[in-house]
């Protein structure tokens, strides 16, 4: 029985990252008595909700061997568009919400089209597109937040259901959707094929470009969703939404077993990676570590987490 459990743990690629997460949670709860209180757990769940949606999107792109560094900018821009539609145009908030998700998917699709048609490396292209979306955002808002978002959609951002924040449940829902797509559908198989060997995928007649476009669009959709939920949460459309959604999700995906080279890993693993980063950032503030040290400490812990995972993998493979 124990042997079987051990075997499962060793063979399951997620066991490393889950183990590291468990370790960090235990250490955190020993270091700070506030860590496990229900309010703090709600906070962690909520911040994981937003960064998690971007992480799901980014990890799916990374499985393809692509990156989209403009997801944060798309989220912020869609949030602002949503704010304008709701406040300035006076559109029904639900309609505006849905419209913004569609616009986000279009932005993602545009990134994908540029990557596939121009045969550009997505890293460089999306750095540029982040500037375009972020710049348009500033042009439209002049940097001023749009206030007066209708309270109707407020519960999407700040409401709770069964003790946990609504955005967290929405993130979980899309995590299930993303895992279903990647693991259970032919489309998901094609994603892994394209990410693991593009020429072999083309040799099999897989339309790599269509797969790419699909994932880019889905990623844009998720970014817009995160942005709109943040607007609902803040009650205002802040131009700065999404600024901090760029590097964290990439690190989270790598920690969770999706390398930047693509072809392996799952969105589920990436979410565990995001949880590791989220818990570390939470605890660092709880412990009152000087803000000048925070980046360094959280960076170092992330490096240690990745190393632990990779060392454990190598160690178990040996035997």
């Amino acid at each position: 029985m124990l042997r079987k459990a051990m075997g499962f743990m060793v063979s399951n690629p997620l066991s490393g990252v889950v183990g590291v997460l468990a370790l960090i949670v235990v250490v955190a709860s020993l270091l700070s008595e506030n860590f496990l209180n229900s309010y703090n757990l709600v906070i962690i769940a909520r911040s994981l909700a937003f960064i998690g949606m971007i992480t799901i999107a980014q990890s799916m792109l990374m499985i393809l061997g692509e990156l989209d560094l403009s997801l944060g900018a798309i989220g912020g821009f869609c949030g602002v568009i949503g704010g304008i539609l709701m406040v300035k145009v006076g559109l029904n908030p639900w309609l505006a919400f849905a419209l913004c998700l569609a616009i986000g998917a279009l932005f993602g699709l545009l990134n994908g089209l540029l990557v596939t048609l121009l045969r550009l490396p997505s890293l460089v292209l999306t750095i540029g597109m982040a500037g375009v979306y972020g710049g348009l955002n500033l042009v439209i808002t002049k940097g001023v937040a749009i206030t007066g978002i209708p309270a109707d959609i407020g519960f999407l951002g700040s409401g709770k259901w069964a003790g946990l924040p609504v955005p967290f449940w929405i993130m979980l829902l899309f995590l299930v959707v993303a895992c279903f797509i990647t693991l259970k559908t032919p489309f998901g198989r094609y994603m892994y094929a394209v990410g693991s060997n593009l020429s072999a995928a083309r040799m099999l007649g897989i339309r790599a470009d269509r797969v790419r476009l699909g994932v880019f669009a889905f990623a844009g959709f998720l970014a817009a969703l995160a942005g709109m939920l943040m607007v609902a949460r803040l009650g205002s459309a802040q131009p700065s939404i999404g600024d901090s959604w760029v590097l964290g999700p990439i690190a989270a995906s790598v920690i969770g077993g999706v390398p930047t080279t693509g072809g392996i890993g799952t969105p589920l693993g990436a979410i565990f990676g995001a949880a590791i980063i989220g818990v570390i950032e939470n605890v660092i503030v709880l412990l009152g570590i000087s803000p000048y040290w925070q980046s360094m400490v959280s960076g170092a812990i992330v490096v240690i987490a990745i190393s632990l995972d990779s060392i454990s993998r190598r160690y178990f493979k040996r035997d």
Binding site: N34, N37, I241, S244, E281, V285, L286
Partner: peptide, 15 residues
């Protein structure tokens, strides 16, 4: 970044 500052405030609240 407002979202990040909100998180800092939330974490402060939980202490």
């Amino acid at each position: 970044n407002v979202a990040q500052q909100n998180e800092i405030i939330e974490r402060a609240i939980s202490t």
